[in-house]
């Protein structure tokens, strides 16, 4: 059983569907980036996964005994927080509340946990400062530390780097990656930043206006038509990510053979891709080829959405 399994998941506001028919699974230890244009419903999906919003159709299944009290969340900042008098320590500690049952006050263990997380995110020396006096990057690190206090298995991040300068952005990404690697906590992140998503994520979920365009591993995504269409000329062939070109010359465009997944996505979404080499030919190829090896067999049953890994 996966940590999270979404089947035919849709969300609507006042009867207008904003997220349509999503199918994907998240396994323990994954780093999933949700990307897509504005208005594709990325934040809505995060709220749905957190049960803050009820799906209009489909299901979110939590597996492996995952409880709401084991989830950490880094929301987008609210207006209220911008002038809220609270010290960094008060904010971080409040992340520990979900493990306290009805006990009214923090114990030593919770204070130690908050301290560890502040140390890990390098905000320990700010702990007595007022949250609203901090820079944007520092505030995000405070909220990440709070989310870490709450997270035992899964952490969801809603555009954690929006409004940050490049240095703060890089350091926040590095810290999130470290959390994922060191503690094995599953990360689900909404991002506008496709380069960083490709660099750190193990899996990509790409949402478009008409629904799910791609779900699969990050390597597969780089070979996909969705990726090339989304980025246009900025698309970099796979080897470029592994051996960055330091000469400053533009990277030569390469045509990469489309994968099985990406062909299916094209057919499924009916979108015109870069490699629309004729649907019939692809379908023909599909019929002849044996299915490619799935590195995660559990998800392969939901036939239609062949982009599952």
């Amino acid at each position: 059983m996966s940590l999270l399994k979404c089947e035919n998941l849709s969300f609507a506001y006042d009867g207008v569907t904003v997220v349509n028919n999503l199918n994907f699974t998240v396994e323990e230890g994954d780093y999933l980036c949700i990307i897509g244009e504005n208005g594709a419903g990325k934040s809505t999906l995060i709220k749905g996964l957190l049960r803050l919003k009820k799906p209009s159709a489909g299901t979110v299944e939590m597996g492996q005994g995952l409880k709401a009290t084991e989830i950490g969340y880094l929301p987008q900042q609210t207006q209220i927080q911008k002038d809220f008098p609270a010290s960094v320590r008060e904010v971080v500690l409040s992340g520990c509340l979900n493990r306290m049952g009805l006990r009214p006050f923090y114990s030593r263990a919770e204070k130690a946990r908050a301290r560890e997380n502040m140390e890990a995110l390098e905000i320990l020396d700010l702990q007595d400062q007022c949250y609203r006096d901090l820079s944007g990057g520092q505030q995000q690190r405070v909220l990440l530390a709070r989310a870490m206090c709450a997270a035992q298995k899964l952490i969801l991040l809603d555009e954690p780097v929006s409004g940050l300068d490049p240095v703060a952005t890089r350091s926040l990404y590095a810290q999130i990656a470290r959390i994922n690697e060191k503690t094995g906590i599953t990360v689900i992140m909404v991002s506008h930043d496709i380069d960083a998503s490709l660099r750190y994520a193990s899996h990509i979920l790409h949402l478009g206006q008409e629904g799910q365009l791609f779900f699969g591993t990050q390597k597969e995504y780089r070979r996909s038509a969705v990726y090339h269409e989304f980025l246009g000329d900025r698309a970099v062939p796979m080897w470029k990510h592994e051996f960055p070109n330091r000469s400053g010359r533009p990277a030569p465009r390469e045509t990469v053979e489309p994968t099985e997944t990406e062909r299916r996505v094209q057919i499924h979404s009916g979108k015109k891709g870069l490699h629309r080499a004729g649907k019939k030919a692809v379908e023909q190829a599909d019929r002849e080829k044996t299915p490619i090896a799935h590195d995660r067999p559990s998800a392969s049953e939901s036939g239609e959405q062949g982009d599952k890994m």
């Binding site: 957190l50 709401a68 969340y73 929301p75 209220i80 809220f84 609270a86 904010v91 509340l97």
Partner: peptide, 14 residues
């Protein structure tokens, strides 16, 4: 304090 500072975080974390 928690519901005042950030209601959706509080709700989301159970």
């Amino acid at each position: 304090f928690a519901v005042t500072f950030d209601e959706s975080f509080t709700r989301a974390t159970g």
